[in-house]
Simulated scan of single mutants.
Amino acid sequence: MLKALLTAALVALVTADSIPDFVAPGTCAKVANQNNFDLHRYAGRWYQVQIIDIPYQPYTRCIHSDYDYSDSVNGFRVTTAGFSPNNEYIRLQGKIYPTKDFPPAHMLVDFPSAFAAPYEVIETDYDSYSCVYSCIGTDNYKSEFGFVFSRTPQNSASAISRCASVFRRNGVDFSLFSAVPHTSECVYRA
């Protein structure tokens, strides 16, 4: 059912009068997921340090998320925040959780302001980096996003280096990623 819902959403986008910029010809990469994924160890604060740009994401800098594990959703209640291009501090809340259709590292993003999307943890050490892939594809079109998360915004070079290698190994073009600015002006209060 999840796959049908995601496919229907992408088909609606592709068949609209104009194709959105984030939909491109091609197929989603077949990425490996983290073995023996531990939801409890994944909980906590993560900072987006590199991403494939998401045009409908309202923030562009200082992006950080708090993942609070919840038994009731068998996943996370997530609060993500950052600054918009207009310097407005924006905070959104949603859920990220595994489904019975996939292994635990292949979760679903469920935020009120966006359509449901996959959240695949390709690799993480839980303490310093997480490489996450999200892609919906149908009829040789894809809507592809990737994230490099770090536990700290300042010392993220090792996370970026590690995830660059992981994404390339899994067939994801790392040249599509761009840096998420984390400057002294950032406020982290998700």
Rank of each mutant, 00 (worst) to 15 (best):
residue 1 M to R: 10
residue 5 L to K: 14
residue 7 T to S: 09
residue 9 A to W: 10
residue 9 A to D: 14
residue 12 A to H: 11
residue 14 V to Y: 04
residue 16 A to S: 14
residue 18 S to Y: 14
residue 21 D to L: 14
residue 21 D to S: 15
residue 22 F to R: 11
residue 22 F to K: 12
residue 23 V to K: 08
residue 23 V to F: 11
residue 25 P to E: 15
residue 25 P to M: 15
residue 27 T to N: 12
residue 29 A to M: 06
residue 30 K to V: 03
residue 31 V to H: 03
residue 33 N to Y: 09
residue 37 F to C: 05
residue 38 D to W: 07
residue 40 H to P: 01
residue 43 A to E: 01
residue 44 G to D: 02
residue 44 G to T: 05
residue 44 G to R: 06
residue 46 W to S: 01
residue 47 Y to Q: 03
residue 48 Q to N: 11
residue 54 I to R: 13
residue 54 I to F: 13
residue 55 P to E: 11
residue 58 P to T: 13
residue 58 P to D: 13
residue 60 T to A: 09
residue 61 R to S: 12
residue 64 H to W: 02
residue 65 S to A: 15
residue 66 D to P: 03
residue 66 D to G: 01
residue 66 D to R: 05
residue 67 Y to P: 03
residue 67 Y to N: 00
residue 71 D to H: 07
residue 74 N to L: 06
residue 77 R to G: 08
residue 82 G to T: 07
residue 85 P to F: 10
residue 85 P to N: 14
residue 86 N to P: 05
residue 86 N to H: 14
residue 88 E to M: 10
residue 88 E to W: 10
residue 89 Y to H: 12
residue 90 I to A: 07
residue 91 R to A: 13
residue 91 R to Y: 08
residue 94 G to R: 09
residue 94 G to I: 08
residue 97 Y to W: 06
residue 99 T to F: 05
residue 101 D to W: 05
residue 102 F to Q: 14
residue 102 F to W: 10
residue 103 P to W: 00
residue 105 A to V: 06
residue 106 H to M: 07
residue 107 M to C: 07
residue 108 L to I: 08
residue 110 D to A: 11
residue 113 S to V: 11
residue 114 A to L: 11
residue 115 F to M: 13
residue 115 F to K: 12
residue 117 A to P: 03
residue 118 P to R: 04
residue 119 Y to R: 00
residue 119 Y to F: 10
residue 122 I to E: 01
residue 123 E to Y: 01
residue 126 Y to L: 06
residue 126 Y to V: 04
residue 133 Y to H: 00
residue 133 Y to T: 02
residue 136 I to P: 05
residue 140 N to H: 11
residue 143 S to T: 12
residue 144 E to T: 09
residue 145 F to S: 03
residue 146 G to W: 00
residue 147 F to L: 12
residue 149 F to D: 00
residue 151 R to P: 00
residue 152 T to F: 07
residue 153 P to A: 07
residue 153 P to I: 08
residue 154 Q to V: 12
residue 154 Q to G: 12
residue 157 A to H: 13
residue 157 A to N: 13
residue 158 S to C: 11
residue 161 S to I: 07
residue 162 R to I: 07
residue 164 A to P: 00
residue 167 F to Q: 05
residue 170 N to S: 02
residue 172 V to L: 04
residue 172 V to F: 02
residue 174 F to N: 01
residue 175 S to I: 03
residue 176 L to Y: 08
residue 180 V to L: 14
residue 180 V to Y: 07
residue 183 T to H: 10
residue 183 T to Q: 11
residue 184 S to W: 07
residue 185 E to Y: 14
residue 186 C to W: 02
residue 187 V to K: 15
residue 187 V to E: 13
residue 187 V to F: 13
residue 189 R to Y: 06
residue 189 R to P: 00
residue 189 R to H: 09
residue 190 A to P: 15
